[in-house]
Each structure stands twice: as structure tokens, then as C-alpha cells.
Design a protein around this nucleic acid. Structure first.
Lengths: 152, 152
DNA sequence: GTTCCTGCAAACAATTTGCATTGAT
DNA sequence: ATCAATGCAAATTGTTTGCAGGAAC
């Protein structure tokens, strides 16, 4: 973890930015919650534990900055809140989401199923893919089972 | 076009809703701009030409209603505005987007490349896919060519 | 005469911005 | 002393809601 912070610090410095205490606290929160998709507000509340005087605007500015540097990825699940994901070390963001329209749960698929498609895209459309995003809406297994029961 | 309006009218009526003049004007705007991804504000301005007294809230309510009835699809490209797309007749929304991070252009791919994946999803994850959404970020052909020129 | 639908204005939520202050080099 | 970064509050933007009036069965 310290190593990753160091990497990010250098990435920032190489662009003339500093890793201030507030920024570091924000990055730590993201590292500690790598599995989640935190909203700016979520991050803010978690950062506040470490650095109580931080302002929400700073969190937004930091997330924006990290997003521009491709340290985090800004996601959007259509619920009106932007969510932020730490990127796996300098690689593309290769996972997909299964969003259940019934219970709102979200499952992640870690494999990348799109490489063949991306190759085809470059070939047929001349489009150089940098990243992608694939979400499926539908009904998850649990809700399907619930639906099948002759309602209690 | 009249036929499609008639279909939508019946779809609404079957659920106890009416196709009011405002709603009809909204649907017409969507039909006339089927290729675009209009934001609520966009729709509002276009509808105003036909029905100047319509209120923005009504447009939102109509789009929300149509969205619930699966007449339109609410899309989200991560720019903070919801966009609305008329669904091709009662089918899934089978197209993907190529978003150029350099010039901001967006191209659409009409084919559906995901059917095999969706089958696999149902098999391996027990997830019943109702819809999906696939966007690629990258650099479009035009911008690539521009970049290759030894800058003028 | 209910009930649904509308327009308007106010409310709201997420995000951004202006600005005076602080902190590091 | 400069210049970036911060906290706070105010502003902005996209969207939703409350409510009184209108239209339709």
C-alpha cells in the first residue's frame, strides 16, 4: 500500500502537483475501499475520519485531479451520482457490471470479455480503444428465485 | 410515423395513461430525432416550437413515464445529463457507442455484438439480461490522423 | 365530480466556483 | 514572495415535487 501511494505521489509530482495531506488521505480511503464504488460523498465521509477539517470541495477537486491523471476512474451507474474507482495498476479497467433492476444489487465480473471486440473495432472502424465500459441490466439470480415462489 | 404514435398511444392507454397533446408533442420530437441522444433540456426546447406553453417539468414527467413503459431508454454518458432514446420497436437497445476522448465525437455502432456474451452470462451467472450498455472510450480515426501530422 | 395532467415556482441534490487564507518552497 | 492548494459559502446545474387550476371521462 505504501508502495502504491509512493507511485501515485510520483505520478502527481511529475505533473507538478503535490500529494498534500488531504490528497493522501483521499487516496488512502480509495485504497482501503478498492472493492467498492464510492461516491464523492462516501469518500468525503470516510476521509473526514482521518482528516476532519477537509472540505467536500477538496474531495471533489482531488477526485477530479486523480481522474484526469487516470489514477481513478469516474463511473456512472445512472443513479445521478458519480462513483470513483481506483484503477488497477496502470492497466485498463477490465471489469463489467451486472446491475439488478429489481433489488439494485451490483455484481462485478472481473474477466475481460471484450478484447476480441476491441480488436475488431480497431480493424473495422479505425478506432483506438483506450477503455471501455460494459454494464448489463437485468434480474439477478436471487430475485429470479424470489419471483418464482408463488408469492408468500 | 403516425402508426408508431398510434402504437404508443395504445400502450399508454393500456396502462390507464392518456396521450395528451403535450405528451404527443414530446413523442413526435423523439421520433423526429431518433438518431440523436437528446437531453431533457434538448427535448424541451424542441417541443416548445410545437407547443410553446409546455413546462420543463412536464417534459421530465413525460420522459420518465415513457421510460417506465420502455418506450424510450434513459442513457447516461457520464457528462451529468440524462439522455433519452426512442427504443427501436419493442426490441432491446442494440447499439454501442464510440466516444472520442479527444474531440468528444460520438459514433454509434448499430450491430449487436453482445449476444454470445449474454448467453454466457445467463449460463454462468444465472443473470437474466434485460438490456446492456457498451461504450468505448478512445481516439477516433480522424483525431489519430490529426495527431500523426507533424503538427502544423 | 373525481381523477389525471399541467404549469409554475419552489425545493432539492450533486457538483462547481470565487475568494480570502494558508502552506510549502 | 510566490504560487499552488485549501475551506467555506455561494452559485450553478440537472432534476423533482407541491400545489392550485384545467381538462377529460
Amino acid at each position: 500500500m505504501e508502495a502504491r501511494i509512493e507511485t501515485i505521489k510520483q505520478q502527481l509530482q511529475s505533473q507538478g502537483y503535490k500529494l498534500t495531506p488531504q490528497r493522501e488521505a483521499t487516496v488512502r480511503v480509495l485504497l482501503e475501499n478498492e472493492e467498492d464504488h464510492l461516491s464523492a460523498e462516501d469518500v468525503f465521509m470516510l476521509v473526514k475520519d482521518k482528516a476532519p477539517e477537509i472540505g467536500l470541495a477538496t474531495v471533489y477537486r482531488t477526485l477530479e485531479l486523480l481522474s484526469e491523471m487516470h489514477v481513478v476512474e469516474k463511473l456512472n451507474f445512472g443513479d445521478g451520482v458519480a462513483r470513483y474507482d481506483l484503477r488497477a495498476d496502470n492497466s485498463k479497467h477490465h471489469h463489467h457490471h451486472l446491475i439488478c433492476v429489481q433489488c439494485g444489487s451490483m455484481e462485478e465480473i472481473k474477466e475481460d470479455w471484450l478484447l476480441p471486440l476491441e480488436e475488431r473495432l480497431e480493424r473495422e472502424y479505425g478506432f483506438a480503444v483506450a477503455d471501455h465500459r460494459l454494464d448489463f441490466q437485468g434480474v439477478c439470480r436471487r430475485c429470479q428465485e424470489k419471483n418464482d415462489q408463488p408469492n408468500e
